[in-house]
C-alpha cells in the first residue's frame, strides 16, 4: 500500500473504486439522504488520504474506512444544528426512491447498530470478523446484533427471520 500522502490521482481513483460501494452504504445508513451521504463519503476518503496511515493490506484499509465513515457520520449527526432538525421530515429528499419498510426500519436503528447490521446481513461477515473490522470486543458485537435483531423483530414482525443460532451465541447476551 502506498503511503497516502504520496498517492497519485490514479491511485486515489483506484482506492475510491475499491471501497466506494461499501462506504457509501455505511454512510447512507447513518445519514439517510444522498446529499449528506456524498459529503460523508467525501470526508471519509479525504481523511484517509490526508492521514498518512499505511495499511498492511486491502482488508486493513477497508476496516479503517468503515470505522472512520461510521465515526464521521456519528460526529456529523451529533452536530448541534442537526440535533434540532428532525430529518424524518425530509425523507422525501433522501434521494432514494425505493426505501421499503424494512430499509426504513434499518435506517431508524440506533446509530451504533447500523454498521454492524450492514456488515452482518449485507456483507456477510460473522461477528468475529466484524469485531476485528470495528475493533470492538466480540461480545459487544454480539450484543449489538442481538439488540438490533430484537428491534427488527419487533418492527418487522413475522417478516423478519430470526437467526439467533447463526450468530453462535444464545440468550445470555
Amino acid at each position: 500500500m502506498a503511503n497516502s500522502l504520496l498517492r497519485t490521482d490514479r491511485e486515489i481513483a483506484e482506492l475510491y473504486e475499491r471501497h466506494k460501494e461499501k462506504i457509501y452504504r455505511v454512510c447512507f445508513l447513518h445519514m439517510k439522504n444522498a446529499a449528506d451521504t456524498e459529503d460523508a463519503v467525501h470526508d471519509t476518503f479525504c481523511k484517509l488520504i490526508q492521514s498518512g496511515t499505511v495499511f498492511n493490506d486491502s482488508t486493513h484499509e477497508e476496516a479503517w474506512l468503515i470505522r472512520t465513515a461510521g465515526n464521521l457520520c456519528k460526529d456529523n449527526l451529533r452536530h448541534w444544528w442537526r440535533k434540532r432538525e428532525n430529518l424524518e421530515d425530509y425523507n422525501h429528499l433522501s434521494g432514494q426512491s425505493d426505501i421499503d419498510h424494512t430499509l426504513s426500519v434499518v435506517l431508524d436503528l440506533p446509530s451504533k447498530y447500523k454498521t454492524v447490521i450492514y456488515l452482518y446481513y449485507y456483507e456477510g461477515y460473522d461477528s468475529v470478523e466484524i469485531s476485528k473490522i470495528l475493533q470492538k470486543p466480540q461480545s459487544t458485537i454480539r450484543y449489538y446484533l442481538s439488540q438490533a435483531r430484537k428491534i427488527l423483530k419487533e418492527q418487522l414482525g413475522g417478516t423478519f427471520h430470526d437467526e439467533q443460532q447463526s450468530l453462535g451465541f444464545s440468550e445470555q447476551n
Binding site: 445508513l29 432514494q96 424494512t102 434499518v106 446481513y121
Partner: peptide, 9 residues
C-alpha cells in the same frame, strides 16, 4: 429481507 433492503441503497 434485510439484505435485499440494504441492496436498495
Amino acid at each position: 429481507k434485510v439484505s435485499d433492503s440494504l441492496s436498495k441503497i
